[in-house]
Amino acid sequence: MTSYNLNHLKQLESESIHIFREVAAQFERPYLLFSGGKDSILMVHLARKAFWPAKIPFTLLHIDTGHNFPETIEFRDALVEKYGCKLEVGLVEDSIKRGTAVEEKGPNASRNALQSITLTESLEHFKVDAAFGGGRRDEEKARAKERMFSHRDEFNQWDPKNQRPELWNLYNGKKQIGEHFRIFPISNWTEMDVWQYIKMEGIELPNIYFTHKREVVARDGIFLAKSPYINLREGEKWEEKIVRCRTVGDMTCTGVVESTASTMDDIIGEVAAARVTERGGRTDDKRSEAAMEERKMQGYF
């Protein structure tokens, strides 16, 4: 007898495709949150698979802090062009101008927290009823309890103690007017799965994921890339290192790691040997033990 078996990556792929299709069927105005990071690039790939040969039936939404790696923006625009996607951009700058967000001060100032404000404003503006995010449960312990279909009330709040049970692959996307859902189709993927799959599928990534020379400053145990948004503290100095990004977020809070990984195989080898989680390079999570949970309750992805 033939053995019908799918490897773990194909099983994860199928689960994610099922979720994309389910959302397209259950919601009226789904948007896909696109950050330019590998997880959101993976999401676009899976969404294309879900609806092929038709185009992705929803719009990409980028919440732009203005503090991105320039390579990320170039990559984003090229991807949108290549696959004929629609893109909307929500600018944190606009929220600051409107006075709904206030810039942080000090040497660790980051617009990361302000993203939540611009995000909720954008979701309201576009009347989004389902927003796809690339969050994974292995990233952080508050995410470990996140649902695939995660309900948000009219104040955009997540109520972790009162989540709907999620059984089998039966997803309940019912909601009142004004409420919406955050959808996490790659919840069950780990960092390793993402890299292995990207390799298996030959998915293109921005070049900052691979080794390059860059000026960085060592701060709080991580290296931050040189950018106009970072002011040196006393005693700090820029130094050139051979680095790459493990995650891609704001230049103000995303650490780069010393690495010579120039191919996908190098990266997979590095991930396999890594002793620090991906988010370990992010200062935003280090603010307190429950930092992620608190930000999520306020509307963060």
Binding site: L6, N7, L9, Q11, L12, M192, Q196, M200, G269
Partner: peptide, 13 residues
Amino acid sequence: EQVTDKAYLDMDL
């Protein structure tokens, strides 16, 4: 053992 990239295409879930 650590997971090597050779093995991951045969891994199941």
